[in-house]
């Protein structure tokens, strides 16, 4: 403990290192303590508020959550919706990103900023006005309606990230492919798309994870017909003790972690921030 004395540390590390160290520690606490707490609560059978450590550990709430029919079906729903939303979003956004990265046309900048705009409004306000439109088109309570809401949420990422990736491809690299005999379509499939893949993969992950945890819009548009993990979460939190919520939260985290782990080689600062450049 003696060596964790701040004064000693300050002089041992030097001013800069010390500040970095402090910041890092604070960051870790902020970032991981809620997570640690969640994990702890999930494995508690009995927990009453003022205490930090639960009174009794066990798997009681796991068996409770896993036995609830509606919760299990919501997990299935979530994945179907996330997969469809990501696929549809890819089909719409990648061509748009390609056009924005390759062709100069009037209103290009305005279009690019309009993507930002969808994220600038307060979400609830946007959903309410969308709800009015959805009523008109009979999209309320439908699968399609929920998909549309999810796509709109991540539209910006889905256009900007692939656009950045596409921009980093040099014209010569595409032209060289034409030169050796590839048609424009073959160039796109064999050269452009594979080279932009890291950016597209990261954007797809964002969309997929975003869709998994989207709750406000889903509730507003899908309730009560469409239930996802995220909307069920509300019910679990309001109807059962915090320990049940913790279990459910952990279940919600698993797919995200799994995907981040599988695609870790694509998720580098480069492929994420390379996209957020306006030229």
């Amino acid at each position: 403990m003696k060596y964790l004395n701040p004064n000693r540390l300050y002089h041992a590390l030097g001013r800069r290192k010390f500040l970095e160290f402090t910041l890092f520690t604070v960051f870790l606490l902020f970032f991981y303590s809620p997570l640690m707490n969640t994990v702890m609560l999930a494995f508690a059978n009995v927990y009453r508020v003022p205490a930090v450590i639960p009174q009794q550990f066990g798997f009681q709430w796991w068996s409770f959550i896993l036995s609830k029919e509606s919760l299990m079906s919501s997990i299935f729903n979530s994945f179907v919706i996330a997969i469809v939303a990501t696929a549809v979003s890819l089909i719409i956004c990648v061509p748009a990103a390609y056009a924005l990265s390759r062709y100069q046309f009037r209103g290009r900048r305005v279009l690019m900023f309009s993507y930002l705009l969808t994220n600038a409004f307060p979400k609830m306000g946007l959903y309410v006005s969308m709800g009015i439109l959805f009523y008109k088109f009979n999209l309320m309570g439908t699968f399609a309606g929920v998909i549309i809401v999810h796509i709109i949420n991540t539209l910006m990422f889905m256009v900007w990230l692939p656009m950045g990736a596409l921009r980093n491809i040099h014209r010569q690299q595409e032209e060289a492919a034409r030169d050796v005999g590839a048609t424009p379509l073959q160039v796109f499939r064999k050269v452009t798309l594979p080279m932009a893949m890291p950016g597209i993969a990261v954007a797809s992950i964002f969309t997929f994870l975003g869709s998994l945890e989207e709750s406000e819009g889903t509730m507003l548009v899908g309730f009560p017909q469409i239930n996802t993990m995220a909307t069920e979460m509300y019910g679990v939190i309001s109807d059962y003790p915090a320990t049940a919520g913790a279990v459910f939260a952990l279940i919600l985290i698993v797919p995200s972690l799994l995907i981040l782990f599988l695609f870790r080689k694509y998720i580098k600062p480069d492929s994420v921030f390379g996209g957020v450049k306006i030229k």
Binding site: H170, Q172, Q173, A176, D179, V180, V191, P194, M195, M197
Partner: peptide, 12 residues
Amino acid sequence: AMVFQSYNLWPH
């Protein structure tokens, strides 16, 4: 057949 000053090859 053309060779450019740079970026001729496909990095993937």
